[in-house]
Design a binder for these strands. Structure first.
Lengths: 136, 136
DNA sequence: TCAAAACCTAGTAAAACGGTAGGTATTATG
DNA sequence: CATAATACCTACCGTTTTACTAGGTTTTGA
């Protein structure tokens, strides 16, 4: 029941990037240094974030990354679903579930999952970005 | 970000046990059969639940388990903390955290964790037991 | 032409997960 | 008293996931 490093580094990368208001692209190396993460590991996460349309990249010297969306349009739940697979505490309905198990799943996990999804879907990234900026 | 089988089986065991209103103790074997879990694996979970005072056991033939608490006095959050370690999505403050990381932790994870803890701490087991009973 | 950057793929050590095996201790019952 | 049913305990183990690293290729501004 933990967010993995993928999710944590991804969040940190986007928050960091949102706070760098420069016209020149921000390099992975600089993000990695500020966030104390290895460049090569961050590359893979950046690749996912790019494919999903959160950031865009510019290749070559002086290249780097820019945000592709405003942080107030980024739903934290969507981000976690991308980086963590999903935000549910249990996998969905499995086969060979007997009626008792099904009842427990419905009455326990579906309730918890729904509340957690509602929670993360009601928070946008700018909440964190603003908090972060005000504390720098 | 998943509840492991420990947490799931433990919850199922307590809900199952709460629904067996018999005067005679309920054997692990019968719970294991109803819940489709191996007896030996459930033993270890039962051991934790017993040590924490959720259930008590009677040894020997005709022995088994009883609930030691009313399900309305069992907070789901406490149960998950026992079985899963904790319910936080991130580990607590780690050493070698730089100021930027600390700020992100405080503005992101502490907010999320607090909400999730509040959620699971506001639900007691009887919610699920009642739902379960009404569907049998 | 060079070097800085993004981008890509395969591999890998360690940890966690999800158990199983094989016992011991206790005690109700015939 | 013997037996069997039950809780209880410890060590081990195969698989999957995690969290990377290594070592490249591609693109492009200066």
């Amino acid at each position: 029941m933990k967010i993995s490093t993928r999710g944590r580094y991804g969040l940190r990368m986007l928050i960091d990037l949102s706070c760098q208001q420069s016209d020149t692209p921000v390099t992975l190396a600089s993000i990695a240094q500020r966030q104390d993460v290895s460049v090569s590991y961050l590359e893979r996460i950046a690749s996912d974030l790019k494919r999903a349309g959160y950031i865009y990249s510019i290749k070559g010297p002086q290249g780097g990354y820019h945000m592709a969306k405003d942080s107030k349009d980024i739903v934290v739940g969507d981000l976690l679903r991308l980086l963590e697979g999903d935000v549910r505490l249990t996998d969905n309905h499995v086969t060979h579930e007997n009626p008792l198990q099904e009842c427990i799943r419905e009455s326990v996990y579906d309730v918890l999952n729904e509340k957690i999804e509602h929670l993360v879907d009601s928070i946008t990234l700018d909440t964190f970005v603003n908090e972060y900026k005000s504390n720098i």
